Simulated scan of single mutants.
Amino acid sequence: MRAAVFHAAHDLRVDTVSDPGEVGPGQVLLKPFWCGVCGTDLHEYAMGPIVIPSTPHALTGATAPQILGHEFSGEVLEVGAGVTNVKAGDRVSVMPLLFCGQCYYCRRGLNHLCQRMAAIGLSYAWGGIAELAVVPADHVSVLPDSVDDVQGALIEPGAVAAYGVDTAGVRPGDNVLITGAGPIGALAALYASSIGANVFISEVNPFRAEFARGLDVGEVLDPSSIDVPAYLKDSLEGVGVDAAVECSGNERALQAALASVRSAGRIAQTGLHTRPAAIDPMVLSEHDITLAGTWCYPVTDWPRIIDLVARGLYPVEKVVSTQIPLDDVVAGFDTLFSPSGDQLKVLIRAY
């Protein structure tokens, strides 16, 4: 079978690899439909291996070369012994986080913080940018007819964005700043709007800013041309927004979020920073501001996110800017990695 395989930084190939073979107990064999390219994938492509293990992973034994892809939907082709939650022919979305179930965090239900955490498509034998994949059966959720294959591939990034907004304590009627209109920022804006929040989006990239305007969920601000915190305070009774979700992983954006929230406001840091960022902790103290980090999502969130999509409340498909075949995967990565790239969310057709 064919798959997109990471070998080293800037060495991503469409290789012919052995098919999975016999499906083990508690596993399912999938035919992936669509798989999204994540920022983590891009970091691996540019500078990896980072998350991808160079020596056998403690939980899975996986090591590079690695089949990529952890945001995907697919069809169940075969189920292993003991599997009862899905059957052949079901369409599913994959929750990719693998956890030990035994460590300090797993025993407390914080499986996304597992001390030996792995991920399908990053530190596991299989990934979603491939013609076939074997995954644990308890990591897939059946998609109802009202959720299509593209939407199914966006449940994972949709869960990331939703966790950020939820961590920021957003409630109906709140004014919320989303910094960064990349895929997670755009999804956070859609989710916050679905809750009933008044959304403001800060984005300096012209393409992404225009894409965000097309979502029609709130005002889009250009931080290169206006003072975003001052504008928000002038517009909102002199106090600023109730909450902010920082989705860019940019130091200036984090500082803008701190300056934009009202006293007793809450900020969720969802974008991943690749280097340290400076803030003034006195601002947190003087204004009773909460700054909370987020990592991935609760592993139990798939049914809830799927239900929101099914009911039309969370239109995750709106963030897709292009869909490409497996053969074009390297070009797709290069386009997303380019600072002048004109794409937001790229989905790869694996079949």
Rank of each mutant, 00 (worst) to 15 (best):
R2G: 04
W34S: 04
T16Q: 15
G39D: 07
C38T: 05
E22L: 08
V23H: 00
G24P: 13
L12Y: 09
F33D: 15
V23Y: 01
C35T: 12
E22Y: 05
D11C: 05
D41M: 11
T40G: 07
T16C: 06
R13Y: 04
D11S: 11
K31F: 00
F6T: 11
A8K: 13
G39Q: 05
L12D: 06
P32Y: 12
L12E: 10
K31P: 00
T16F: 09
D19P: 15
A9I: 05
V37N: 04
V28C: 09
F33E: 09
W34A: 11
P32V: 02
R13L: 01
L42S: 01
F6R: 04
H43R: 10
V5S: 03
G24W: 10
P25Y: 07
D19S: 15
F33Y: 12
V23I: 12
S18V: 03
H10L: 13
D11F: 05
M1Y: 04
P25G: 03
P20D: 12
P25E: 01
D15H: 04
G26I: 14
V37S: 04
F33P: 00
Q27H: 10
D15G: 02
D19V: 02
V23G: 01
H7L: 10
H7T: 01
V23E: 02
D11P: 00
G24M: 07
P20H: 07
A9G: 01
T16H: 13
K31W: 00
R2N: 13
V14A: 02
W34K: 13
H43Y: 09
E22K: 13
P32D: 12
G21L: 10
L42C: 05
S18K: 14
D41K: 11
H10V: 00
R2P: 09
D15W: 08
W34M: 14
V37T: 06
G26N: 11
M1R: 05
D41A: 10
A4Q: 06
G21H: 08
A4Y: 09
G36H: 09
G39L: 10
D15R: 01
L42A: 03
V17P: 02
H43V: 02
V14P: 07
G26M: 11
Q27T: 06
A3R: 04
C35W: 00
A8T: 02
A3C: 09
V5L: 12
M1G: 11
F33I: 00
E22D: 14
G21D: 03
S18P: 08
G24T: 10
L30F: 01
V17M: 02
R13C: 03
G36F: 01
Q27D: 15
V14H: 07
G24D: 05
Q27S: 14
L30H: 01
V23Q: 02
L30P: 01
D19A: 12
G39C: 08
M1H: 08
L29Q: 07
L30S: 07
A3W: 02
H10A: 09
G36L: 13
G26E: 14
D41G: 07
F6V: 10
S18L: 14
K31E: 14
Q27K: 14
F6P: 01
C38R: 02
